[in-house]
């Protein structure tokens, strides 16, 4: 009885870590610029396809493909930021939505064109397959790896935000953009770099996600909803908030699908709407 419960808890937490990687960049950039980037998961999808291509077509090892997934997603996000997004920072949220939905549509179609609509196969290296048994509970090695990676990244992020000059600038810009500008911080540049980092992390998340949730062109939309939930529940611009929200969301989603499968995703959407209604200003307190 307790065994499956701990297993579900762990799987849920691992899933939550995935969601955290996918969403943390959006949370910070939203907090900074209030730019509604609905195409954030397209960057994640890009990272996924980069990994699949490198491994299946070029024979790269899994671990070596991960940094490339990060870099590719970061590069594409900064390209889009410099060419399109930056022109809409002062535009209405509707325009921001429309532009980024347009990008999602294009990315989904492009992925379907190049890779087809089928799930992409991914052969994990041997040392990440199988599982360890601790106190009678099965822990899949890959999920352990995933959790460890995500925790390491979280620590690095939190530390960088606390203790580097760049982190100070980011915090100032999230806290009060006008004041930050007044202090002589180049908010636009800080934002561009943050945006690239966030996109890169999403790309990494997308690459890591394949072995858990698979990869097809629907990824960009399917996970957008989860990412938005994490961002809105965790609070804009808060890494810790996103972390906690992602963990809770991951666990409740996995637990929900395990214990009440007939409800499907309904439960998650209900939670999302409920939470938004319960604490909109808490969640969006900075507006």
């Amino acid at each position: 009885m307790i065994g499956p419960f701990v297993g579900v808890l762990f799987d849920g937490f691992a899933y939550g870590m995935l969601l955290f990687l996918l969403s943390v960049g959006l949370s910070v950039t939203l907090g900074m610029m209030n730019f509604i980037n609905l195409a954030h998961c397209s960057f994640g999808m890009l990272g996924g396809y980069v990994t699949v291509t490198l491994m299946d077509h070029l024979g790269w090892p899994f671990l070596a493909s991960l940094p490339v997934a990060f870099l590719a997603a970061a590069a594409v996000s900064i390209l889009l930021e410099r060419t399109l997004y930056r022109r809409l920072y002062r535009a209405s949220e509707l325009d921001q939505c429309l532009l980024t939905i347009g990008i999602v549509f294009m990315s989904v179609a492009a992925a379907a064109y190049v890779y087809g609509t089928v799930q992409q196969p991914l052969q994990l290296p041997d040392y990440l397959q199988g599982s360890v048994v601790i106190a009678g509970v099965n822990f899949a090695l890959y999920r352990v790896f995933l959790v460890a990676t995500a925790l390491a990244i979280t620590l690095v992020l939190v530390a960088a935000l606390e203790w580097t000059r760049f982190g100070t600038r980011v915090r100032a810009a999230v806290d009060n953009q006008r004041m930050a500008r007044g202090l002589g911080i180049n908010v636009d540049r800080t934002f561009a770099i943050t945006f690239a980092l966030g996109g890169g992390l999403a790309g990494l998340g997308g690459a890591l996600a394949i072995a858990i949730v698979g990869l097809d062109p629907g990824f960009a939309f399917a996970y957008l909803v989860y990412v938005l939930i994490v961002v809105s529940v965790g609070g804009l611009g808060s890494i810790r908030g996103s972390f906690a929200a992602a963990a809770v969301l991951g666990i409740s989603d996995v637990a929900g699908k395990y214990y009440v499968p007939q409800l499907g995703a309904f439960l998650i959407y209900l939670v999302m709407v409920g939470l938004l209604m319960w604490r909109p200003s808490g969640l969006f307190g900075k507006r």
Binding site: L84, R87, L88, L98, G102, I103, M106, S107, A109, P217
Partner: peptide, 22 residues
């Protein structure tokens, strides 16, 4: 054409309208 690809053009159209024809 495949509905999947139809949405490529819709996406492009959206981007174009937002950027050029507000």
């Amino acid at each position: 054409i495949n509905p999947q690809f139809w949405y490529f053009w819709i996406g492009l159209l959206l981007v174009a309208v937002v950027m050029l024809l507000p």
